[in-house]
Computed example of a mutant assay.
Amino acid sequence: MSNIEMLLSIMAQLRDPETGCPWDIKQDFDSIAPYTIEEAFEVAEAIALRDYPELKEELGDLLLQVVFHSQMAQEQGLFDFNEVVQVLCDKMVRRHPHVFAGTQADDEQAVKANWEQIKQQERTRKGREHNSTIDGVPAGLPALQRAGKVQKKAAKVGFDWRAPEPVREQVSRELAELDEALSSGHKDAIEDEFGDVLFTLVNLSRHLKIDPEQALRRATNKFERRFRVMEALQTRPLSLLDESALEAAWQEAKKASD
């Protein structure tokens, strides 16, 4: 028995209605979906940390999600794991004609153009013809990632700034509009303007060729590191310090951790 056959067998036993695990039996596509997303992020975290033993384990956890969904689909007569793999193999061959069909693709841009054209053909065959340039971006993506993808699609037809400087100016304008909303005290307006600030910052990151998700993760990690140092340096709980003492402790932690 191969490793993948063993994994499929284990999953089938876990889902057995009579002898399986009560938790596994209870699950459905909707309840498992959040775990699938979480495991993908844990893979990304292991990569960011260059923790390759952890990456090996997290990739296994992500594979388990595919097997879990496939088992539930098989139970409902929808498809099974082998069909998932077959569809994937067919798609990879179809979307790489420059490798498998002898067509020409001289550089990465040509590959991307071919890929998008083939994806559009696939959508048409499935009856999913898109009417807008920005169609095809999954609504379930993390907000920062989805914002970037929508912006990139719009940029393909020229709806974009040409340089980072005007985008930075737009950030200032959006912040001014947020200040106005804050003055009004209107919660919906504040949320709307705050969203505009974030959306414009994603646009700026794109022009600066910075991954906003990675940049925010890096900033959060820096804050976490400094905060832990600040806690370690204090002889009293932070909750007992007043505002000025907290600021002094923070500045001390920054010096000690940087």
Rank of each mutant, 00 (worst) to 15 (best):
E174C: 03
I10S: 14
E180W: 08
V93F: 06
D242T: 14
H186D: 11
I210P: 08
K187N: 11
P53I: 12
E252M: 11
W115R: 12
E213F: 00
N203K: 02
C21F: 00
N203A: 09
E83V: 15
L59Y: 00
A181I: 00
E18P: 06
S184E: 00
P138A: 13
Q145I: 07
D90L: 10
N203H: 09
V84G: 00
Q145W: 02
A147E: 00
L49V: 11
A143W: 15
G185M: 10
Q170A: 14
P164A: 04
K222M: 15
D51N: 14
T36H: 01
A232N: 08
T235F: 01
M6Y: 12
F223A: 09
E75M: 03
A101E: 13
D135C: 10
A110N: 08
A44C: 10
Q104C: 03
E116W: 11
Q74A: 13
R123F: 09
D51F: 08
F100R: 09
K255P: 15
S183F: 07
K209L: 08
P34F: 03
P138V: 07
E224C: 10
T124C: 06
R146S: 13
L175S: 03
S31H: 04
H69N: 02
A248K: 14
D196A: 10
S70G: 11
Q86A: 14
L55Q: 09
S257N: 01
F29Y: 15
R95D: 12
P212V: 08
T235H: 07
M1P: 04
L59C: 08
E75P: 10
E108N: 13
Q86D: 13
S2K: 07
F79V: 05
K222W: 12
G140Y: 08
E169W: 02
D51V: 03
L88D: 08
E122K: 15
I37L: 05
F29Q: 00
T220Q: 14
G195D: 02
E57M: 01
L201K: 07
A215Q: 12
T19H: 15
A176W: 02
P34K: 09
E177Q: 06
N203W: 04
K56T: 07
K209M: 06
A215V: 08
P237E: 06
V157S: 01
V137C: 11
P166R: 04
V150I: 11
K91F: 05
Q109A: 15
L64Q: 12
G77E: 04
F159Q: 07
Q121Y: 05
P17M: 01
V111W: 05
D30H: 05
V84K: 03
D30I: 02
K156V: 13
L49M: 15
V85K: 14
E54M: 13
I37M: 00
R173Q: 14
V99R: 13
F29T: 03
F194K: 10
A105Y: 02
A147V: 04
L178H: 01
R168V: 14
E169Y: 07
I118Y: 01
Q121F: 01
K26P: 06
M1F: 02
K149E: 12
E193F: 04
F68R: 11
A189S: 13
K91M: 11
E39L: 00
A44D: 10
A12T: 09
E18L: 09
V84E: 02
